[in-house]
Write a protein that binds this DNA or RNA. Structure first.
Lengths: 143, 143
DNA sequence: GTTATTGCAAAATATTTGCATTATA
DNA sequence: TATAATGCAAATATTTTGCAATAAC
């Protein structure tokens, strides 16, 4: 068995997730496609190789991975949710022109270290993102 | 004319928005209801007083206000968009138990001052939010 | 009087659910 | 063999759109 598949299997089992063929393939896809795909884009891309795959399985799987903290969910566009498998220690930038999402590193104590409590609320997760015009669109438009 | 209505009218005109009755009333609602309503909750609440109001008008209006930078849009839950009329200089906290959204002040240079550029991308807007267990749910559950 | 906005219903989009079939432990 | 996951279709939820009626300048 491929060492990548084996590693994914172990990771899923450790998280308490049954490592089915579909789940392993979806995780493999997420590891290989770091362009912040949506559930539907994962489904469409993977359908070529895995024609029996269903949207429901993709949605079930990404929801499960997010719940078990193996996958990051990004609600940055306001429409679909984008996913990020290597989601720790970076934030995101959405280009308002082309819609691409970029990984960015922000030097901000809030983002780097966990704030345990604020106004009495227990803080479990911290999210940060930015919107603007990306480097490619700036070049194209001279802005 | 009420001074509040008059102020809203001026604000809309200044932003280049025609101050129709529905738009003024929606802005008035947003000023008086700072619990981060959704388009649908605005529609449902306002329907009692304004039975002819339509969902389309609410959606049109909030989209227009966001576009003209008079209203903040929050995609924090992953489902519906929540709105915040006084959206400057604070961030948000979502309780994973009760779903309430709280305003919080975060001492973070990233949030306080605008970063003009990062990795070559032009930064127009910066968002930050947190998720966890709110002070009320913590008390109830002793967590 | 012309242009813009509203309201309604239908459409579009994103996601979830019920349930029979299939795979996993 | 019992339990859990998959796949399909239908359902649900959120938001947008087309268009006739109405309101604003």
């Amino acid at each position: 068995m491929s060492p990548i598949i084996d590693r994914i299997k172990k990771e899923l089992i450790q998280a308490g997730i049954q490592p089915t063929y579909q789940r392993i393939q979806i995780v493999k896809y997420l590891m290989e496609n770091r362009n912040h795909p949506t559930a539907d884009s994962i489904y469409r891309d993977m359908s070529a190789e895995l024609p029996t795959l269903s949207r429901a399985t993709v949605y079930n799987t990404v929801n499960l991975l997010v719940e078990k903290n193996l996958l990051g969910a990004l609600n940055i566009t306001g429409t679909e949710t984008h996913y990020d498998y290597y989601f720790r220690d970076h934030q995101h930038f959405l280009c308002i022109r082309c819609g691409r999402i970029y990984d960015i590193s922000v030097d901000c104590s809030l983002m780097q270290k966990k704030v345990p409590e604020i106004d009495g609320h227990r803080v479990d997760e911290i999210y940060g993102y930015m919107k603007g015009l990306c480097v490619h669109c700036r070049k194209r438009e001279n802005q």
